[in-house]
Each structure stands twice: as C-alpha cells, then as structure tokens.
C-alpha cells in the first residue's frame, strides 16, 4: 500500500509537471523532447535495468516507429493516432524479428543491436528506396501538423510507460525479471521461464520506442533519416537511465531532469561540452557508483520507488 502511494505520487508529480510545464516555461519543444527522452529512458530501463541487456541500437525502434507512423499517415491517410499505434506495432514486429539477438550475452547483444539499428537506418535512408521511404530526403507531415494534440498524445504515452515501470518495480513479474538479470541459471531453477520473460521485456521496450517515435514524427512533422536514427538518441536515453539507476521508477526520471536540464542549459549551443560532461559522468559512475544515484539512497536504507 505504501509502495503504491509512493510510486503513485512520483507518477502524478512527473505527469503534472509536463502537463502544466509549458505555462511555467514557454519552450514547448523542450518539454516535449523531455517527455520523449523520459519515455525512452524508461524503455531502456525496462530492458537494461530489469534484465541487464543494454541495447545500443535502441534508436532503431524509435526510427522505425517514426517512419512507420509517417508512412501510414502519408500513404494510407490514417488518423495520426491510429498511425502512431501502427508505428508501435511495426516496432514490435521488428523487435520480434530481432529477438534472436537475446541469445547473445552482454557486449555481443549491445553491439548486435547497434548493428541491427544501423541496418534499418541504411535501408530506410537508401536512395534506392526513394519511392517508398523518400530515401535520404526524409518525411513531411505538415498536412497533419498539430502540436497541441501531439503533445497530449505524448503525455498519455509517457503516463503508460511510467505506469508500466512502476508496475514492474513492485510486481512479482518485475522481481522475476531482475532475478534473470542476477543469475539466469538460478532463475530457471526457480521456475522462471527466462527466455520468455526476456523477450517480453524486449518487446515492451520496442513498443514504447515505436510509439514515442511515431508521436515524435507527428510533433516535429518534418524530419530526415538521421534525425530519427541518430545514435545520440540511444546514448541520451542510456545515460539518463545509468545516471539515475536502473530497475527503479525514479532513477531515470531523476536522470532525465538533471541531465536534460543540464543539456538545455549548456548543451544546445555547445553540444561538445555537454558530451564531455556526460562522458566523464559515465566513467565516474562505472568506477564509483555502478548502480546510479538511487543506489546511494538505497544504501542509506531508503526504499526508493
């Protein structure tokens, strides 16, 4: 009960902040991107935080969702919301096709997922496919442009994502996922269907990235392949999660607010200085605080949601 209360209040405060944020500080784009990164960071969290698989190529699902949703809008004239759901479904299917990657462990999985994402990118952006994807020239959704509606849809997706993470944080399912991360052999002996659980987490994170990608495409309405397949999208989401700490609801939220805040303060005009800061942060975290900021509080005996 206390757990539900804690998780619920974290969820509520975060969502409220994004709901009214634009009235506090009018840079709507910044708030929107904040939601995008928070949802992606939680997607990384579901996979990496709970199962230990770190997907460098996570952006592949984001880009897939963006392109699929856009194509459903432009070529099939579907409603944006239906198109976004289609984007999520497409990312889910790609995730299913790529699920053999989960047979790989540690570094191999990370690099394998990166290769998969780059393959999707080079295929989508290939001039030979210009008739389908418009090749390197990107997509144009100006006919569907609606910043208010897309902002609201993004808020809903963020809410669902946060809710999912909160569920995993406190449910037996989440506990079982963490057990597979700790020791797959023992997990199997404890009766956990290890492979099925991992695939579930993988597909869930793919679905989230696909939905977020579709909404992102709708919101900015004009984009190029290298906008939505930019490796920095993966990197940001990973760093936010690592910074706060995985397998928790609050970790990635803290990571996003602190680091994305920092990015908006110094990063936009001088991204290389921001890159330097988070590079140093990663090295320091690995050496001194491998479980993120939240582990500091946990060590002190606080139960962090």
């Amino acid at each position: 009960m206390r757990n539900k209360l804690k998780a619920g209040s974290v969820l509520l405060v975060t969502l409220l902040l994004f709901a009214v944020g634009t009235h506090i500080y009018s840079n709507e784009n910044m708030w929107f991107q904040g939601m995008v990164y928070l949802a992606l960071a939680q997607g990384i969290n579901i996979l990496y935080g709970f199962t230990g698989y770190l997907p460098f190529g996570y952006v592949g699902f984001f880009g897939t969702g963006a392109y699929a949703a856009s194509l459903y809008m432009t070529d099939f004239h579907t409603q944006p919301i239906v198109a976004i759901l289609g984007g999520g479904a497409t990312a889910l299917i790609v995730g299913l096709l790529l699920s053999p990657l989960l047979r790989l462990s540690g570094a191999y999985f990370s690099i394998g997922s990166l290769a998969a994402s780059q393959m999707i990118y080079y295929t989508v952006s290939n001039p030979a496919l210009q008739a389908v994807t418009n090749g390197p020239y990107g997509m144009n959704l100006e006919a569907f442009y609606n910043p208010t509606a897309s902002y609201a849809v993004m808020l809903v997706i963020l809410a669902l994502t946060l809710f999912t993470t909160a569920y995993l944080r406190y449910s037996r399912t989440g506990l079982a996922l963490r057990a597979t991360r700790e020791d797959a052999v023992s997990a199997a002996m404890a009766g956990i269907p290890v492979v099925r659980m991992r695939i579930m987490a993988w597909l869930l994170s793919a679905l989230i990235a696909g939905l977020v990608g579709g909404t992102f495409a709708w919101h900015i309405s004009v984009f190029y392949p290298n906008t939505v397949f930019d490796l920095n999208v993966s990197i940001f989401a990973i760093v936010f999660t690592l910074f706060g700490g995985g397998a928790s609801l609050l970790g990635p939220i803290i990571g996003m607010f602190v680091l994305y805040g920092l990015y908006n303060w110094i990063g936009i005009s001088a991204p290389q200085y921001f890159q330097l800061i988070y590079g140093v942060l990663i090295v320091m975290l690995v050496l001194f605080l491998p479980n993120g900021i939240m582990s500091l509080f946990r060590k002190k005996g606080y139960d962090v949601p």
Binding site: L175, R178, A179, R181, E182, D183, A187, G191, I192
Partner: peptide
Amino acid sequence: FKGLTVRENLQIAATF
C-alpha cells in the same frame, strides 16, 4: 540472486 533480498529470493521460487 545477489542483488535481491533473502525474502525476495525465496518469494520468486514460491511464486513461479
């Protein structure tokens, strides 16, 4: 499961 508590270790097995 080193990162989990003793209780959680036992709980998992009993749940699944």
